[in-house]
Design a protein around this nucleic acid. Structure first.
Length: 380
DNA sequence: AAGTGCGTCAACCGCGTTGCG
DNA sequence: TCGCAACGCGGTTGACGCACT
């Protein structure tokens, strides 16, 4: 190998730093500057390896480090930059003054990544999980027109006849089966006379033509914007339960190789798009513009088309921006960090997370499906 | 009150890159 | 040009604290 380890293990301290060690390191660097990390610990009287000293300094003791929770703007920036740069944490950190790569990495893995998954967005490619998307739209469609589902099962290539929803993915037969099972298990509830959707269902013309496009869109939008919470949550629970059942019954596999989503088929490649939009100035300007336009989540062009389809189907007022947005109070959080030790004191951790989650939870069905299929099984 | 599970984050580890003699 | 030392980066680990049972 030839390469000597960064430090000989004997006699060197490991683990959390003590306040005394921190102070010794700070004093030494104040006096001599940093660098020469290999010899620094000996000169500073520390029983640490140079690597450990460097990490402690760059990630914790540096005077320009910003403490406290990430603001919403910072979070947006991280998501944007990650969509372009990927896991280049140091590059992302370079664009977030006062934040370290380690801090950003941790925050991504513990907060943002989970939230994206929960929202049905693949955190690696930053694209909607199309399998869930098409299942969601399929379920949405069949919710209003049961005949459509049986038709689709026999004629999956005619999915686009379902209405003016714009270009939609071709339908995976597995998902059709899943939707079928789902629908069957939900039918009693949907037809329950006390159900809030009764009027809408009763208003559906009962003929052989697909009438999705003739449904007043406002009704569907109202369902999202002004949910009758009790009934809606029942539907949610029912869907979750049914989906889990259906997954067992139908044995749907995670493969998505049997369909080619429209809009993605023309040689689309995440890395191509990353390359096209990799300049930081572009990111910054797009951030600013997208703020004004209320459309932030635009790291990949694919979202523009696919997302529009989804959002129009679901709610004209919902964009990825609003999915990620949270009440403005988020940025000022009373977290306090103890600089003198490696331990942290967090006085409030759940409120804002809850706000974000609940804010996102208006995404009917798509959100539920993502939850029900929780995990990475369906990520392409 | 004790036990358990889970989330968070500082710190560590291994490997690739850079700089220098 | 080569080899080594130092540095930097990204993934992973483990200690800690909190929530829940």
């Amino acid at each position: 190998m030839g390469k000597t380890p960064c430090c000989e293990k004997n006699g060197l301290q490991k683990g959390p730093w003590t306040p005394e060690e921190d102070q010794a390191l700070i004093d030494y660097i104040k006096k001599n500057g940093h660098g020469r990390w290999r010899t620094l610990p000996k000169n500073a009287g520390l029983k640490r390896c140079g690597k450990s000293c460097r990490l402690r300094w760059t990630n914790y003791l540096r005077p320009d480090i910003k403490r406290g929770r990430f603001s919403f703007e910072e979070e947006e920036t991280i998501i944007q930059l990650h969509s372009v740069l990927g896991n280049k944490w140091s590059a992302i950190a370079a664009r977030l003054p006062g934040r370290t790569d380690n801090e950003i990495k941790n925050y991504w893995n513990t907060h943002i990544r989970k939230r994206l998954l929960k929202m049905g967005i693949d955190p690696v490619t930053h694209t909607p999980r199309l399998d869930l998307l098409e299942l969601s739209s399929l379920l949405n469609s069949t919710l209003y027109n049961p005949q459509a589902l049986s038709y689709l099962i026999n004629n999956p290539n005619n999915y686009n006849m379902l209405g003016n929803m714009g270009p939609l993915p071709l339908v995976n037969q597995n998902l059709l089966n899943l939707a079928s099972a789902l629908f069957a298990s939900n039918q009693p509830k949907i037809n329950n006379p006390q159900n809030v959707q009764e009027n809408q269902l009763n208003n559906i013309p009962q003929n052989d033509q697909f009438q999705y496009s003739q449904l007043p869109f406002l009704n569907e939008a109202q369902l999202f914007m002004e949910p009758k919470m009790e009934q809606l949550s029942q539907t949610h629970e029912s869907l979750d339960h049914s989906l889990n059942q259906a997954l067992n019954v139908t044995g749907v596999e995670s493969t998505t190789s049997t369909f080619v989503p429209m809009g993605v088929s023309n040689g689309f490649n995440h890395h191509d798009i990353s390359a096209q939009s990799s300049s930081s100035s572009m990111v910054n300007s797009s951030l600013a513009e997208s703020h004004q336009a209320g459309f932030v989540y635009s790291g990949n062009n694919i979202i523009g088309q696919t997302q529009n389809n989804m959002m129009h189907m679901m709610n004209p007022n919902v964009s990825f921006s609003s999915l990620l947005s949270t009440p403005s109070s988020y940025a000022s959080s009373p977290n306090t960090y103890n600089v003198n030790s490696s331990s942290t004191t967090t006085t409030t951790t759940t409120t804002h997370e809850d706000e974000r989650d609940s804010f996102c939870s208006n995404i009917f069905m798509y959100h539920d499906i993502a939850n029900a299929l929780n995990g990475n099984e369906l990520i392409m």
